[in-house]
Amino acid sequence: MARSTRSPARLIVALSVAGVLAVFLVYTALTGTTPALQPSNLVGHPGTVSLTGKVVGQVTGDAHNPTGLHFELHNIQGKSPIVPIIYHGSVPDLFESGRDVNVTGELVGGSFVATALTTKCPSKYTAQV
């Protein structure tokens, strides 16, 4: 096997890394990220946000009716303001009062209008005794 004094390997590596970084930086600069908030720090964030909290009180309405599904969220841990949620769409498994959920949407006139709702998986590592 001949030894080459001028290997293109380093150039390939350098160009590839530079290319990757350029694509990456341009992409992250151009595309928006979504703020992930809790009820306690929701105020002052216009536009679409992801809100995580615990469902408190009664769940009323119907997610497939124009009035929507109504429920309220507060922080999973500690005290916080209660945020009223209006949701239209498919209701995920195990959704009920007391569950930790994540909603995506925006604050409109004091209510959070959600377009996506996910129940946190009440899986293995949650003590239930």
Binding site: T31, A36, S50
Partner: peptide, 14 residues
């Protein structure tokens, strides 16, 4: 002071 998440479009893109 709060998290900003990369959503599905970011991961799908890359």
């Amino acid at each position: 002071g709060y998290q900003r998440t990369m959503g599905r479009p970011y991961f799908d893109f890359f």
